[in-house]
Design a protein around this nucleic acid. Sequence first.
DNA 1: TTAAACTTTCAAAACTTATTGAAAGTTTTT
DNA 2: AAAAACTTTCAATAAGTTTTGAAAGTTTAA
Lengths: 168, 168
Amino acid sequence: MELAEAKSKFIEAWGKLGSEWGINRTMAQVHALLLTSPVAMTTEEIMEALSISRGNANMTLRDLIGWGLIEKQHKAGERKEYFFAEKDTWTIARQVAQERKKRELDPILKVLNELSAVKGDEKDPEYKTFKTSITSINKLAGNVNKTLETMLKAEENWFWGSIFKIFK
Amino acid sequence: MELAEAKSKFIEAWGKLGSEWGINRTMAQVHALLLTSPVAMTTEEIMEALSISRGNANMTLRDLIGWGLIEKQHKAGERKEYFFAEKDTWTIARQVAQERKKRELDPILKVLNELSAVKGDEKDPEYKTFKTSITSINKLAGNVNKTLETMLKAEENWFWGSIFKIFK
DNA sequence: TTAAACTTTCAAAACTTATTGAAAGTTTTT
DNA sequence: AAAAACTTTCAATAAGTTTTGAAAGTTTAA
């Protein structure tokens, strides 16, 4: 397999994975393109490489910046904006985890906490089942949340630090 | 807040979370309904409770069985099938992790391994960047995979066993 | 064996999400 | 101050996904 083919396979696979995880396909593809590009690219070049429209390219690039996965670069004497991707895999994983925590885990935790507070008749099976399920999901979600917070904050933490080394 | 309202809030929130994570909304809602139900329910009752069609209910229930999140129950002297959800949160999390690993991680690992094998000119920056990115993503994905396998297989493992206790 | 009870399928329709591209906006250069 | 170079917006449209419901299939009981 030659490089160009390999690169487009990667872009395709990354796009598919993204869409399965609720990340827009184009966003994942642009990310893959920049991840495998040795140089920063312009909007024009990205549009060209992936056959996408200007509008789509622009919105996607802004979203990726919002996720902290790519950055703008200004070249001296040039008007155009160049984009390049953060290439450290661990940092990428952390950014994605952080963003999804903020967007999804935090809101559901809020709901679960509210629902945990609902009072009812301990003898009512409906109530008991509800209470038990909510409490146990809430506990797991809370633990995931705490763990993520620790991971995202301090890689230096002696305990997690040693676990991270396994992954890197 | 009274129980009925709380229950429907939970169903809604669980459905939303599901759709953000690439799990069909109805599927997550049916799951939430059964999770909070003290008794097994028939297709008819589920259709009624969530205002969904027979076809949709049927497909969703089959999918949930496929994910190992719910089971059929036959009541003596009855023709109807009853469905109930596995209620242990940790088991739910494990089932979901297992299913997604199979559907998503395994295929991407296959692609990454293929792409890792691509040969090229070490002096070509295009090649070098590609190689470096793929290798590093491959390594992370491989580690995640190994960890998941261990977690899914043996909760008794001394190391992970002690980590799990933090979550439960 | 036939009717009734129940489950499954699938093409069409509804709904949701992503993409386009032209127009408007902004910044820089002349 | 006007033109050129570039970026952003957004309504219309396309693409993708989910849902419906009627028809076909299956199982059990009489």
